[in-house]
């Protein structure tokens, strides 16, 4: 029997060990190389032999970098809040309906949409938001002046992200909403609670952690995106991803790595501060 237990432990630990080694080598080492690269100065596409902090000095005096960081975080926050809010409305509305078919169709549609190629989808949306597109035409037809969500504007980029991330938020909140015990809602109804009370006092508190997951996930995916910001924002809406790609296009890998490294720490710091605020509020 002790042999069996030892054998069991050995196999289980080996299974875990393989993935840990995999992650340390194939995730840790690239990050190390990224850090190293950020201290290399590139001249005509070739790195100097010595390490320098020139890239960081240049970066911190570059107003475009601050603009890119601000734009990226603003986009991340706004898109994650709007996506989660719209998804919450969709999920609450779907669960208020008696027909399960509609509810299931919503989940199915979101799952399918989420896995259909992002680039062709965004390209279609680029046309829909353009001055020749149907949205702008309908806006003008209604007698309104400038279409607020047109291409190459901040609002347009936010709009461009919604069809991409609302389905993801819906999937997350849908699964959480399904976990809410029916008898809680039934009991509240029998005690005379209205729909508004049920949603605000029972459902939303119970799916709070999923709301948080949706906010964080959409935030992370938005700040890392390079497709929507490029196709809908063009060169007018500048993000950190655009800055990194621009440096790569001129073969300045050192600056690209420096931007990446500072950005990585900014993201981790931001998430740390957010988690601190949330934990502090929970403590209160």
């Amino acid at each position: 029997m002790p042999n069996t237990i030892n054998n069991k432990r050995l196999i289980q630990n080996t299974m875990g060990f393989i993935h840990i080694v995999w992650q340390v080598v194939l995730f840790g080492a690239p990050l190390y190389f990224l850090g190293l690269l950020s201290f290399k100065h590139y001249n005509m596409g070739l790195p100097d032999a010595s390490l320098t902090i020139n890239n960081y000095q240049l970066l911190f005096t570059d107003s475009l970098f601050y603009k890119a960081i601000l734009n990226t975080f603003a986009l991340g926050i706004i898109v994650s809040v709007i996506s989660t809010f719209l998804a919450l409305i969709a999920v609450i509305s779907a669960f208020n309906l008696k027909q399960k078919t509609i509810r299931n169709t919503l989940l199915y549609a979101c799952a399918v949409v989420f896995f259909i190629g992002l680039i062709p989808r965004t390209f279609v949306f680029q046309y829909l938001l353009s001055d020749q597109g149907p949205f702008s035409a309908s806006w003008h037809l209604a007698g309104l002046k400038t279409f607020p969500f047109r291409l190459y504007t901040f609002a347009g980029v936010v709009m461009g992200y919604l069809p991409v991330f609302v389905p993801l938020s819906i999937i997350i909140l849908f699964i959480a909403r399904k976990e809410v015990p029916r008898n809680y809602i039934q009991a509240a109804k029998e005690l005379g609670a209205g729909n508004r009370n049920i949603q605000f006092d029972i459902v939303i508190p119970l799916i709070k952690s999923s709301l948080l997951i949706s906010l964080v996930l959409v935030f992370l995916l938005t700040i890392a995106d390079v497709i929507v910001i490029d196709l809908i924002g063009g060169s007018r809406i500048y993000s950190v991803s655009s800055l990194i790609i621009d440096y790569i296009k001129i073969d300045d890998w050192g600056m690209a790595a420096a931007v990446s490294f500072v950005f990585l720490f900014s993201v981790l710091l931001f998430l740390y501060l957010i988690s601190k605020i949330i934990l502090k509020k929970k403590g209160e």
Binding site: L26, V226, W253
Partner: peptide, 12 residues
């Protein structure tokens, strides 16, 4: 963010 990992991964 994948772009950060991608850059380091290419160098690796």
């Amino acid at each position: 963010p994948f772009i950060l990992y991608a850059l380091g991964f290419l160098e690796f």
